[in-house]
Design a protein around this nucleic acid. Structure first.
Length: 328
DNA sequence: AAAGTCTGCAACCGCTTTCTT
DNA sequence: CAAGAAAGCGGTTGCAGACTT
């Protein structure tokens, strides 16, 4: 037979916890440690279900819980992880010390999700919502080479569409045309060269100050982290910023990088002293239009509602056969 | 100032997985 | 091995406070 019931549901209190109840629970857990929630309410003198006690402890009373507003880095991390893990809040919370899955879930639903929607990005797929994209204004642009777009229709770059959505919503037609022309130049070069087997660099105009801070960076690129070939990656060679859609996959030795608009290739080689991401980033772009011409639109402002996050320097494709569930 | 609406979040609900007997 | 409860988890709700009309 199975266990006996954890509690008799009749007569148990529900709803908000009082200070007295919190105190009883905290004192009991401090003495006996968390766990054994079945017998805890009775032993602690609480008229609560064990499940309720466990939730109260894990979501509110635990001493290591970080209180207060989510930082910019935390928010960025949540977005990046959600693009990979989806609504696996506990898995996301495991990588955000001091934050609970419930807290992250609430923050996602009340803040991040709304902001993504407002920016025309589907919060489920993390891709632009094409139904909101004003394509007619793009296609009617006098300066835009329509044939280029049509030729590239099989290479729709989600990053282009994402940025185009933002720009379209800002009614800044000039910047939109500049950006699309720039992106098309880059894609044409990629097409011509037929390279970059596993990794496609994505252009951004972020200054280095908006890359991940050290703490967040260390969470993903720990000193003992290995690449796909089980080789330990030198910390100094790790990317300065989280990859966009797959922050937990590091490049393998066969991966190549190229700065946007540049002809110079950089091969990722953890054992080489010649490779570093800064050299990729500092490679001058050959495009006639500086990408940072749109920086006023994509820069992070750090205000409450409009902290747009464009931390993506590189976008990594997920290797075939890679199992997220195994990874998690 | 009052009523209505919106927002944020703690807590609950119900399903699935894990564990105990 | 099976039954059934505990634990874990994501979705949803209810309510207090903030904001708007």
């Amino acid at each position: 037979m199975g266990r006996s019931p954890c509690c008799d549901k009749n007569g148990l209190k529900k709803g908000p916890w009082t200070q007295e109840e919190d105190l009883k629970l905290m004192e009991y857990v401090q003495l006996h440690g968390p766990g054994n929630w079945r017998t805890l309410p009775k032993n602690a003198g609480l008229q609560r279900c064990g499940k309720s006690c466990r939730l109260r402890w894990t979501n509110y009373l635990r001493p290591d819980i970080k209180r207060g507003r989510f930082s910019f880095e935390e928010e960025e991390t949540i977005i990046q992880l959600h693009s990979v893990l989806g609504n696996k809040w506990s898995a996301i919370a495991a990588r955000l010390p001091g934050r609970t899955d419930n807290e992250i879930k609430n923050y996602w639903n009340t803040h991040i999700r709304k902001r993504l929607l407002r920016n025309g990005i589907d919060p489920v797929t993390h891709t632009p919502r094409l139904d909101l994209l004003d394509l007619s204004s793009i296609l009617n642009s006098a300066q835009l080479n329509l044939s280029n777009l049509l030729n590239l229709q099989t290479l729709v770059n989600p990053e282009v569409l994402k940025l185009a959505t933002l720009l379209a919503s800002s009614s800044n037609q000039e910047n939109l045309e500049m950006l699309l022309n720039n992106q098309m130049n880059q894609m044409n070069q990629t097409l011509n060269n037929q390279q970059l087997p596993n990794c496609i660099p994505i252009a951004t105009s972020l200054p280095n100050s908006q890359l991940l801070n050290q703490e967040s960076h260390n969470q993903y690129f720990a000193p003992d982290m290995v690449n796909m070939n089980n080789q330990i990656i030198d910390e100094s060679l790790m990317p300065p910023c989280l990859p966009d859609h797959n922050p937990l996959i590091l490049p393998s030795e066969s991966d190549q990088f190229r700065a946007p608009g540049s002809d110079i290739e950089h091969k990722f080689n953890p054992t080489s002293q010649n490779f570093n991401f800064d050299s990729v980033l500092s490679t001058p772009m050959s495009s006639p239009t500086p990408l940072n011409s749109s920086s006023t639109l994509v820069n992070s402002s750090n205000t409450d509602d409009d902290r747009e996050t464009y931390c993506s320097m590189f976008k990594f494709e997920i290797p075939e056969g890679f199992e997220f569930d195994d990874f998690i």
